[in-house]
Design a protein around this nucleic acid. Sequence first.
DNA 1: AATAGTATCTTGCATGACAAGGTATCGTGT
DNA 2: ACACGATACCTTGTCATGCAAGATACTATT
Lengths: 93, 93
Amino acid sequence: MCVLALLSKGDNYAYDIASRMAEAVGMGEGTIYPLMRRMQNDGLVSTYLQESGSGPPRKYYKLTKAGAGALKSQITDWLAFEVAVRKILGDVT
Amino acid sequence: MCVLALLSKGDNYAYDIASRMAEAVGMGEGTIYPLMRRMQNDGLVSTYLQESGSGPPRKYYKLTKAGAGALKSQITDWLAFEVAVRKILGDVT
DNA sequence: AATAGTATCTTGCATGACAAGGTATCGTGT
DNA sequence: ACACGATACCTTGTCATGCAAGATACTATT
């Protein structure tokens, strides 16, 4: 969901996504490539190559219509989950 | 974290915890027993048996001091995670 | 006696995160 | 020219864990 959300703000490549996710939630780099592959297989993202000038060519990922739909429904689910957890935590917090 | 939070409100047995978690976040019943075992091995909970009158005896779980500490730190982590995710979702939501 | 509800638990499978390692490209310093 | 660090891609193997399915057993109801 977070990766889809990042892509909804603009095309990006795995290495940069991984860096942002690492900083935000501590995601490891080894996680991103299988994840992107899965999302591409599921038709949530499409890719294109682009030269970088600062290293090897980057594989950019772009959110598809299906990806945007998935993001929307995942956000709905996430918010419901958040509420459910908050309810369980209740006055403990 | 949610199970620890439930236990912080009073001792309980796995079957009932599982029911609450199933309703709240869709957790399956097969999840609870390995989880409780793990938490007991980690010293987060202790157990005692009690007759029920409406079935086999229940194994009640009670939060230990270590469990209360783990809950506290897990809540801290969770809240930070929530914030990080919200930040990523940002105006997408 | 049979069934349904309560309550325990185990087994096997699938998912997925990640550390570690491998490859290749570019710019910078020596 | 060459080494090095940063960038950027990717794979492999391992470990954790959620869950469906099934096994067991006790109690109460039909």
